[in-house]
Design a binder for these strands. Structure first.
Length: 208
DNA sequence: TTATAGATTGCCT
DNA sequence: GGCAATCTATAAT
């Protein structure tokens, strides 16, 4: 899998967030750790547009918090929400133009035990590794997947996803998505009706 | 300076 | 199904 996979380029992210969100489905998020690698397949994303999108953090202009969204494409934007959780995004569109994609759910692939430990899940029972409901607790949800990958704003905000040196990368391993379902975004109150949420149809690891 | 809402989750009834 | 936890940015005083 890893040997044949290719790192996504800056050009991949230099497009409309809706196209990026759709294209990211089926790709693999990788975290290189000192003691190994964590990996999960992206099964759910949401597009956030820079202009005319009341729900986007970039809606009311550039600030210290959201500056990554206004920077060059393919960079890591992490924000802290509800006092408890981090959410992972990637910037889209050229430098100076805001836009991004929120990662909402992953299907765990590599480093499952490490991710479960980071989530505080019970890993002593081997049968848990075959329990779909248990596996879903690892990374089905934006706050959950950040905890599993140990992603924080202090450590990861502003990193470059497209650098071969980066410990956070997104790769294409050749996986083909059969069908995509598009619906309204989740958990927001502004501009909630826009169909900007993308999921792999039928995949059991989507957040809802 | 104080108040409030938020791209969430897990525990309670 | 309801709600508390708990930090940040932004709006209101």
């Amino acid at each position: 899998m890893l040997a044949a996979s290719t790192l996504l380029s800056s050009a991949f992210f230099n497009r409309d967030p809706r196209r990026v969100a759709r294209s990211l489905l089926g790709k693999v998020l990788i975290r290189k750790m000192p003691r190994g690698v964590l990996a999960g397949r992206i099964v759910e994303t949401e597009a956030y547009l820079g202009e005319g999108d009341g729900a986007a953090h970039s809606a009311s202009g550039k600030t210290a918090r959201n500056s990554v969204l206004f920077g060059p494409p393919g960079f890591v934007y992490v924000y802290f929400i509800y006092g408890n959780y981090y959410c992972l995004n990637v910037s889209c569109l050229p430098d100076g133009v805001a836009g991004g994609v929120l990662f909402r759910a992953l299907e765990p692939l590599t480093g499952i035990k490490e991710m479960a430990a980071a989530r505080g899940l019970e890993i002593s029972k081997p049968e848990n590794l075959k329990d779909l409901q248990w596996l879903r607790k690892i990374s089905s949800g934006p706050g959950r997947m950040c905890e599993a990958f140990d992603i924080t704003r202090a450590r990861d905000n502003g990193k470059n996803f497209t650098s071969s040196q980066s410990d956070l990368q997104i790769v294409d391993d050749g996986y083909r998505v059969r069908r995509v379902a598009i619906g309204p975004r989740i958990g927001i109150t502004k501009s909630a009706a826009e169909p900007l949420r993308y999921v792999i149809a039928g995949n059991p690891f989507v957040s809802l």
